[in-house]
Design a protein around this nucleic acid. Sequence first.
RNA 1: GAGGAAAUAGCUCAGUGGUAAGAGUAUGGGCCUGUCACGCCUGGGGUCGCGGGUUCGAAUCCCGUUUUUCUCGCCA
Length: 582
Amino acid sequence: MLRSHTCGELNMTHIETKTTLSGWVQKSRDLGGMTFIDLRDRYGITQLVFNLETNKALCMQARKLGREFVIQAKGVVKERSNKNLKMLTGEVEIFVDELTILNKSKVPPFTIENETDGGDELRMKYRYLDLRRNPLRENMELRHRMSIETRKYMDSQNFFEIETPYLIKSTPEGARDFVVPSRMNQNQFYALPQSPQTFKQLLMVSGFDRYYQIVRCFRDEDLRADRQPEFTQIDCEMTFVEQDDILDTFEGLARHLFKTIKDVEITDFPRIEYANAMKYYGSDKPDIRFEMKFVELNDVAKGKGFKVFDDAELVVGICAERCGEYSRKQLDQLTDFVRKPQIGAKGLIYVKCNADGTFKSSVDKFFDQEALKIWAAKFDARPGDLLLVISGDTEKAQKQLGELRLEMGNRLELKDQKSFKPLWVVDFPLLEWNEDAKRFHAMHHPFTSPKTEDVEMLETTPGKVRANAYDLVINGVEIGGGSIRIFDKGVQQKMFKVLGFTDEEAQTQFGFLMNAFEFGAPPHGGIAFGFDRWVALFGGSDSIRDFIAFPKNNSGRDVMIDSPSKIAEEQLDELKLKVVKS
RNA sequence: GAGGAAAUAGCUCAGUGGUAAGAGUAUGGGCCUGUCACGCCUGGGGUCGCGGGUUCGAAUCCCGUUUUUCUCGCCA
């Protein structure tokens, strides 16, 4: 070993110990007569000290060290005369008597500090340097610990970790596939899995009973801060279970991770139907760290001659506590917010609940004090509160108000970073109408089972069929989702029919699964968690990028290795591919 | 696919038509024996993303282009 200790472990108990440390030069402070070097490794920073009087040659050598040089230093642990209690090793230092430069370093393009001066692009290009920084190192450690604890819990619950293939078959539903040409099978392509969905179902048919995998998934869609083209799921499937069994099992996983990683006991996992999540929060992933529930006003708002309300399918509002003093400017800002094209509301109506018990609203012309008093009562609003009301088509109005609710949550600082509020959203619709394709799409995926009592509606009103599908949401972030699967060939065929597949297409695309279902498929269901998001959530970040060692940028590029890139003509020839210049 | 923003020293940024493009930081040299954001002195460092245009004159205005980034669409 090129070291006897790490840079994070030496303290007062090691005084007078002979030690050999290896690491990177974090910083040197040359005071003339003496020189201090901060030596860094994964474990911490230890101060090396060189004295011109004691050993001139060595001190001169130390002065020449640059940032990020890799060195080995041998010496004795001494108590500092000037202690630095901000550092873990700040009570001691090493009197060095032998110094070896293991490797020099160019001056790094940005500072390797907790607060670096480098911008995102530069840090991505030199990711290996960025990963030397404490915050990134800590993120990787968090990720590591979460994967270990996940495996511990899953193992304790008798789950097998089984690997599934990455070179699979392209399927029409869902996200765009990444595609890989096959050399041995000319003109044919593999696809990278969007998730191991069908394979884990086949493992259930095989009788493995409980499967999980921490597995890479690939989706060729546009990216966001919380989306990467390749990302990691905790993918799980169980046999002979009903929805509650799955929710219970994975509440267990969530509790275990919260306890072991965050030292937080989660007592409550409320469950809310999708329909109510939309009705009260305008979102299928409500952030319930704060209340501000929707109140519907159709009965008191319509029929008073205000055309906007009378023509609307839904009039709905929220109560922002203690915002009754909002200025014209602040209200205009909120109106602009909901009118942004991304949100798309026509306007915003406000009611100020004045301290003296009167009301001031933007619809005073149509609603007198008595009418507004009834509104306020519906919100349980107190003097000093502000009511914000949106109207329009039900679904749109709910989503728009949902965005406004989150915005108000930000403005009023109601989203406590340290608080974690998980919940299950259940009873998702089975299907959603796709206006462009003029057909239904599976909301979750085509193998999700409809609720038994709703199956009949598949042929009459497919849009109303509810699914045995559920999402785990924490602090407004969709952490995972799953469903009880269809295990009956007949139901699966019906499902494909509703999705607009001909029997032939269904057979070509998913024949392998339907065939398997004819050989004694057990009832089963499962769930998959977005591991990167979960780690980021625990790490207190909205972006998953800094929780992935080597992420890609917004355009799906790895700017460090410069991929994707062109390939050689010979490679194309071998694959029988031609590149068309556009 | 649609829209917004940005590109100036190694890095982070200021500079909105006019002399010679600046700051902080990093970096080279010098001084300093208890620093730990060390301090002080001093030096080097620029294709103002790229291409075209307007102008007596463009980092600055206009057009195009590339890259990055944000939002929406999209992401079962």
